[in-house]
Nucleic acid binder design. Structure first.
Lengths: 228, 228
DNA sequence: GAGTGTGAATTCTTTCACAGCG
DNA sequence: CGCTGTGAAAGAATTCACACTC
């Protein structure tokens, strides 16, 4: 019984030097900050500037960035443009990625309107919902489709990622449909743990859980905490 | 210049045995799972059941739960009701918490409609936005107020937590207003790092960053990852 | 037997500190 | 000089393994 501990990551074929999840999170933040620098026309940045801006240590920034080759130039710092390019390649967002959205309730609709995905290389390219009142409506330039058209749309847009914004009760079933359709990564907003086959990756964002954690740090006199 | 490294957490007055952030996250998930058990009328649970359900190890669950006294009974497990009570106390949500919402764009409105906060002990009790078209409107039973009424509302509802759902450009300024009004914890959805005084805690959820991380795990052949 | 609590061992992260390049 | 890259040291978090309780 029980499929537990299947997350041994099957360290199968040529796993390239895996970057740790914690590091990946920071890399995202570096990229976000570099975006800002690039807009201001700044072309070079030091580990110290990065660490100050993000609340880390300079050594940590250097360790993170050193993981994929020599990028910095001693005495100068890192080239903003080159670093951004490299980071995008690591994230696989150097080319635009189509993402499926399942669930067009209030959260789903808010995500459709969200302006922040485009600049990061993502586009919500298809929306799905099975509720009778919703199928066929047009939202944010997308026609809401029934779930049965999922597999076809995944192929058409070559989608690997999906966002789940359905109620908790429906989430596990939706996740299974997504996996069958060939989706490899799920960003899950439903407050349940999703069970998915090996090879599929899930990141869950439970809004209430975030508030709860915040509440802990505040209640228990933790002077400060920064996450994200 | 630069206020860096201010996160030294000023380990001031009687910091009780601080629980690590990673542990806090897991405690949230335990509580969420216990909610489900309680609904099903299950009164007792073992570390093994918890770990299987959440993709952890049994030892880790026991370590986490042992941090605050002896709760489990050997040969039996943990009492669901007692554990829930204890966890809620730790999170400071044994009593209902009022939360301020700033920004009633599409995300803010989605949060107002979100059903998941109530059962966790949170209530969005006041909504703020300075956009002319929004002030005075009623959304989800709340009147949208101008920011200048923030301080007063914070006092009235004894609010310590706030949700920031405004555009990136406005976020830092809003954060400062919140801190001045006495808010101690901010759940931030704007894609910027917020600088806040010592004693205020920030948790940021950047939706695009989450997608980016997911994209990394998928692109780089990571067999599985689970977060949340 | 089933299941907790916990020291000891292990593994993962972060920080330090310094050699060496531009 | 200023700043990177990196081994070595320190610090956390996780896992192991087992005594002990119901």
């Amino acid at each position: 019984m029980s499929s537990r501990r299947s997350s041994r990551s099957a360290s199968g074929p040529t796993r390239r030097n895996a970057i740790s999840p914690l590091t990946v999170r920071r890399l995202s933040l570096y990229l976000r900050f570099l975006d800002g620098l690039a807009e201001q026309g700044i072309t070079t940045v030091s580990s110290r500037q990065l660490s100050d801006a993000l609340g880390l240590t300079a050594a940590q920034v250097r360790k993170d960035l050193a993981q994929f080759g020599q990028f910095g130039r001693p005495g100068v710092g890192y080239r903003v443009a080159g670093l951004m390019e490299k980071l995008r390649a690591i994230f696989g967002t150097d080319t635009l990625r189509s993402v499926a959205l399942v669930g067009v309730g209030s959260l789903g609709r808010a995500l459709l309107r969200y302006k922040g995905f485009g600049p990061k290389g993502f586009r919500l390219s298809a929306a799905f919902d099975d509720a009778p009142g919703k199928v066929g409506r047009e939202l944010g330039g997308l026609l809401v489709q029934p779930m049965e058209q999922l597999a076809q749309a995944v192929r058409k847009h070559d989608m690997r990622l999906a966002v789940v914004a359905v109620p908790a009760e429906a989430a596990q079933q939706v996740a299974e449909q997504l996996c069958r359709a060939g989706i490899k990564g799920i960003l899950n907003f439903a407050p349940v743990k999703l069970d998915v086959p090996d090879g599929v990756c899930v990141i869950s964002v439970d809004l209430a859980v975030q508030l709860q954690q915040l509440s802990y740090f505040v209640s228990s006199g933790h002077a400060a905490c920064h996450r994200g």
